[in-house]
């Protein structure tokens, strides 16, 4: 194992900055994570629909999951002052259960037109099977028809070829590369993605995806155009503070503040706002709306926000 030196996360250096995490699976995270994210300056996020660690056995499970992304999870997020968006799609792994995939395709139109749904995602390849390709193409058509951006998951195995193939197919289906966000890039894939006019997203995820020191080098090398970072935090060992931490590291390593703003906030918003579903004013409104509409001076608890618990206190009231 590589020797690891602990470098403390310097929150002071990014104080006052705001962040947008365009890929994070909050359904599998705790309220502690929401609080930590809000404290670190995350004001908005996108939760892509994905698989749940094990395959679903019926279409109702998909419907309930999609419904929770636009319902309960969005509400939960708002309680911490974070604006929650999502992308809706059939993930590549479960596309391999064709009988179920057919039924899921039928209910997708019910969800992709919903408010706050900023794209079709995360879709693409896992094992690169024929079934995966079939439902990937069908969902690209759906996105095109609904004028929604597409969030592409690129495979862990055989990544470089899988990424190239994903882009080839997107172009074959007639999508504008500027409407397509190719996710989970690394040093091997980034050049082609950018050269072909797609958005390149990087997932800062320990052990298996990008580390943030490597990310700093990528920004130094490729600049900021069409580049964004995310945490893809889920139920695995991951870090929901990956975006603000990487911002702090970039700052420490001499990347200009405007460049940091682009890759940790603005570019993701520019890309997904093509859905017509992101309004930056909503970030501020998450708390204000709750304050004016819910409580009307009737309670000591303001803002629809969860009361904070002092984690250092032994006493629990």
């Amino acid at each position: 194992m590589q020797e690891r030196t602990a470098v403390p996360f310097n929150r002071e250096s990014i104080k006052g900055m705001t962040f947008f995490d365009p890929h994070v699976h909050m359904t599998s995270r705790t309220t502690d994570d929401y609080q930590a994210m809000a404290d670190a300056g995350v004001v908005g996020l996108i939760e892509p629909a994905f698989w749940l660690g094990q395959p679903r056995t019926g279409v109702a499970s998909f419907r309930d999951y999609y419904s929770s992304l636009v319902g309960w999870e969005r509400f939960r997020s708002s309680q911490f002052g974070i604006k929650h968006y999502c992308t809706i799609g059939l993930n590549s792994r479960e596309a391999n259960n064709e009988a179920l995939a057919e039924q899921v395709m039928e209910i997708l139109p019910l969800f992709i037109y919903k408010e706050g749904v900023v794209g079709v995602g995360e879709i693409g390849f896992d094992d690169q099977t024929a079934a995966e390709e079939k439902y990937y193409r069908l969902q690209l058509d759906l996105a095109k028809e609904a004028s929604l951006p597409v969030q592409i998951h690129t495979p862990h195995r055989d990544k470089k070829r899988g990424t190239t193939r994903s882009m080839d197919i997107a172009l074959e289906q007639g999508l504008d590369p500027y409407m397509v966000i190719v996710d989970h890039n690394n040093e091997e894939t980034v050049k082609e993605v950018l050269d072909r006019g797609f958005w390149a997203a990087f997932t800062i995820y320990p052990f298996t995806k990008m580390g943030n020191e490597r990310m700093v080098e990528i920004v130094k090398h490729y600049g900021t155009e069409r580049i964004m970072i995310n945490s893809a935090a889920d139920w695995g060992i991951s870090d929901p503070l990956a975006v603000p931490k990487t911002a702090a590291l970039m700052k420490e390593r001499g990347i200009p503040e405007e460049a940091i703003r682009l890759v940790t906030y603005q570019n993701a918003i520019t890309a997904f706002a093509q859905s017509g579903q992101i309004n930056e004013a909503d970030f501020a409104a998450v708390t204000q709306i709750d304050q004016s509409q819910k409580f009307e001076g009737n309670t000591v608890l303001r803002g629809g926000q969860q009361p904070r618990v002092d984690k250092d206190s032994m006493i629990i009231r």
């Binding site: 309930d64 636009v70 319902g71």
Partner: peptide, 9 residues
């Protein structure tokens, strides 16, 4: 109802 998001509800 079962497919509704918050504002739809």
């Amino acid at each position: 109802f079962p497919a509704a998001e918050m504002q739809e509800l």
